[in-house]
């Protein structure tokens, strides 16, 4: 699958959550996503970046504009080296939180994306990949 453009950003502070939104917006425009799709993936990026900051101790976000025959998409990868998630199924349920949030981050981001995958084990960090297709 050809990658038309990539960008990456390190998440270390809450200012970086704003930067992720800006990066996601620029890449969503590049992908040619419509306004609602743009808004959805930017919002999902904001949730996942904050999760990564609050629970994973920060990490790296990779943004890729992808091209497949007949369609373009934006894929965002969030990878941290934090403590990992013991029960991924539970963490995806709305209202589940071990911190101060509302527990909408993971489940919300999943609903706002066309593709969603999560790979996490205690002690091994967390990797979340989302994609939105045009």
């Amino acid at each position: 699958m050809p990658t038309l453009r990539t960008d990456r950003l390190e998440i270390r502070s809450s200012d970086d959550v704003v930067r992720v939104r800006q990066m996601a917006r620029a890449m969503a425009l590049e992908t040619g996503l419509g306004l609602v799709d743009q808004t959805k993936i930017i919002t999902a990026a904001s949730e996942l970046a904050r999760n990564m900051l609050d629970y994973g101790g920060g990490g790296l976000v990779l943004a890729e504009v992808l091209e497949q025959p007949g369609r373009r998409g934006l894929r965002l990868t969030f990878e941290d080296k934090g403590p990992g998630i013991a029960d991924v199924e539970a963490a995806l349920k709305d209202g589940f939180t071990t911190g101060k949030g509302m527990g909408l981050g993971l489940g919300g981001a999943k609903r706002l994306s066309n593709e969603f995958s999560i790979d996490s084990r205690p002690g091994a960090g967390t990797k979340v990949v989302i994609a939105r297709w045009k």
């Binding site: 306004l35 609602v36 743009q38 808004t39 959805k40 919002t43 949730e47 709305d94 509302m102 909408l104 489940g107 919300g108 609903r111 706002l112």
Partner: peptide, 12 residues
């Protein structure tokens, strides 16, 4: 409008 649609889907 796009924000309203997204908020509801997010669960808020």
């Amino acid at each position: 409008p796009a924000v309203a649609i997204t908020l509801v889907e997010l669960g808020l």
